[in-house]
């Protein structure tokens, strides 16, 4: 029971990072972006590549940090990956979304995002192979935190959770303390007024892609660190991330953060009563429950 709760929190932090970026883009550009989860995959593979590059350039970087399987090289690679994934998100917007946006309605954007997701996912499969990859071949044993009830946690999981929380706190401080954060919130609330207040919308869209891509990359690496890296990583996390945005209310950044944890915990707790084979369907059940009880989610506003 407590093991499921803890696992749920760990997965939840990853979902939160993904959902924050997704909900911002959905709110600003008003379409459900089905390719968002592929940014997690891009981030995970990008870190894999740069992990190798850094270790090859300077071998001592390949040493692990403390009890983690995380190396110095990989921690640097995370930062590089965040930047590159943010850049990829902008590139995808420039190449596809902004052009479709100029031509057609929101519906075309949703279709385009599915197409983009298929291209990215399968291109990653072609480039890196369909097999599972790991950041570290070393086996890291889980630490027994408690015997009764049994609670096992890997150091890497603790690191991922702490790092995810750290990123979210930084993001929160930015939103609540800086004028850049105010502009983000202003644009989310009222794009027209934001414009006449001197905020350049196109610039904000670019920034939202950078932030969304960066957070997604971190989420992808943390997922890879605590599970594994494979080309369908994004596909498997897509529905849980969407569920997190709906639980929080589409457009609500704080809702998405909280929604990620709720979905992670609920999915893991459900394993107490359901066979594990059903876990991919859990996010859908959560979506159904939210739509029945409170369609606008925790913090969402009703918008047509």
């Amino acid at each position: 029971m407590i093991q499921h709760l803890v696992d749920g929190i760990l997965v939840g932090s990853i979902l939160s990072l993904g959902a924050i970026g997704l909900t911002m883009a959905m709110h600003m550009l008003r379409f459900a972006n089905f390719s968002h989860a592929e940014l997690l995959s891009i981030g995970a593979y990008c870190a894999l590549v740069f992990d190798g590059v850094f270790t090859a350039v300077y071998a001592p970087l390949g040493n692990v940090i403390g009890p983690l399987s995380l190396t110095w090289a990989l921690s640097l690679a995370i930062l590089v990956s965040m930047a590159i994934t943010g850049g990829s998100a902008i590139l995808i917007d420039r190449l596809v979304f902004s052009r479709v946006r100029a031509k057609g309605g929101e519906l075309s954007m949703v279709f385009a995002s599915f197409g983009v997701a298929m291209i990215i996912r399968n291109a990653l499969g072609l480039i890196f192979g369909l097999q599972v990859q790991l950041y570290s071949k070393d086996i890291v044993f889980a630490t027994v935190l408690s015997r009764d009830p049994l609670l096992l946690v890997k150091p890497d999981q603790i690191f991922s959770l702490a790092a995810a929380l750290f990123i979210m706190v930084i993001f929160h401080l930015m939103l609540s303390r800086t004028t850049f954060g105010y502009s983000l919130r202003a644009v989310a609330e009222n794009p027209d007024l934001a414009q006449v207040s001197g905020i350049n919308l196109n610039q904000m869209i670019t920034l939202i892609w950078i932030i969304g891509g960066g957070l997604a990359a971190a989420a992808g690496v943390f997922y890879g660190l605590t599970n594994q890296v494979n080309p369908v990583l994004g596909r498997d996390l897509l529905l849980p991330i969407f569920a997190a945005t709906i639980v929080g209310g589409i457009g609500s950044i704080y809702g998405a953060a909280l929604g990620g944890f709720l979905v992670g915990i609920a999915s893991n707790m459900a394993l107490l009563i359901l066979p594990s084979g059903y876990s991919p369907a859990m996010p859908f059940l959560i979506i159904l429950v939210v739509l029945v009880i409170r369609p606008t989610g925790l913090f969402g506003e009703e918008r047509a």
Binding site: Y182, R185, A186, E189, N190, D192, L193, A194, Q195, V196, S197, G198, I199, N200, L201
Partner: peptide, 23 residues
């Protein structure tokens, strides 16, 4: 461009929704 009106020295106060409620 609406976001450059301020730089020209022109401000616009819309009729409704003219403040950011969440800030």
């Amino acid at each position: 461009r609406p976001d450059q009106m301020g730089a020209h020295g022109v401000a616009y106060v819309p009729q409704s929704d003219n403040i950011f409620r969440s800030l």
